[in-house]
Amino acid sequence: MKSDNTFRNISVSLISIWLGIFALLAFLLVVLLSFMKNDSTTIFSWQFTLDNYAALFSSLYALVFAKSFYIAGACTFFCILLGYPFAYILARKVERWKEPLLLFLIIPFWTSSLIRSYAMVAILKTKGVLNNVLMHLGIIHHPLQLLFTNSAVMIALVYNLLPFMILPLYANLEKFDNRLIEAARDLGAGKIKTFTKIILPLSLPGIVAGSILVFLPAMTLFYIPDLLGGAKALLLGNLIENQFLLTNNWPLGSAISVTLTLIMGVMLIAHWLTSKNRERGDFL
């Protein structure tokens, strides 16, 4: 027993120290920096200021926030549209193919997302795989100009983030109690009504969890607009990257980063509150 405790203590304290240094301390530094005054030769000067946050309300940065939210929202929407039926079928319809299909979903993670984005370039480019196939089949006669457009960015974002939507949905739908559907049928509900009144509302926590996992990364995967959007479409991630690497305005970059974290925090709290309410609802 005693040795068990030692092991637990060691592993818990190791992880706490690790997270404390590399996550919490790093984040606190970023928070601290976001209240400092910008100085392009020494990175920052020890003067407290709220200017960095005030700057976020300028029309230009507000526009990037709006644009990022729009792109991330659209990406989340497409992920739900594609991911929900897939997760549904995976969880409830296929028995023999379940494990291979799940494996196929995981396999892309064995390769870095950056490398897979380069692969997307090879597929989407003018003389790329997609155009060659479509031309060969006679579906199109001139190559599609997909690369370096917003569509290319969207395709790559959805491709990269789709598994993060499917997995929570799958976990949710798999636990689904079949008796509820039988009960609905017995009470005379049709297929559509069963879905909209029973399945969809009960899988809402899965949709919300998936959306949180998709929405935030969609705004910060800066290399996707760089590689597939021709470095034109600026997401919040690109904006942060530019502040650190290009304009040498670290405090502003930190302020944007902290704001993003706050948005994420608000979303998580909302998720937590709704799921808590739901649990209480179940008891009633």
């Binding site: 392009s40 030769t41 230009l60 940065y61 526009l63 990037v64 470095a231 034109k232 479409a233 600026l234 690109n238 530019n242 290009l246 304009t247 040498n248």
Partner: peptide, 19 residues
């Protein structure tokens, strides 16, 4: 100069933001 470079960087960022 430092000021010119900052100006360059500012306009560059604005150009990218307005793309």
């Amino acid at each position: 100069s430092e000021q010119s470079l900052n100006l360059y960087a500012q306009y560059w960022e604005m150009l990218k933001l307005k793309m």
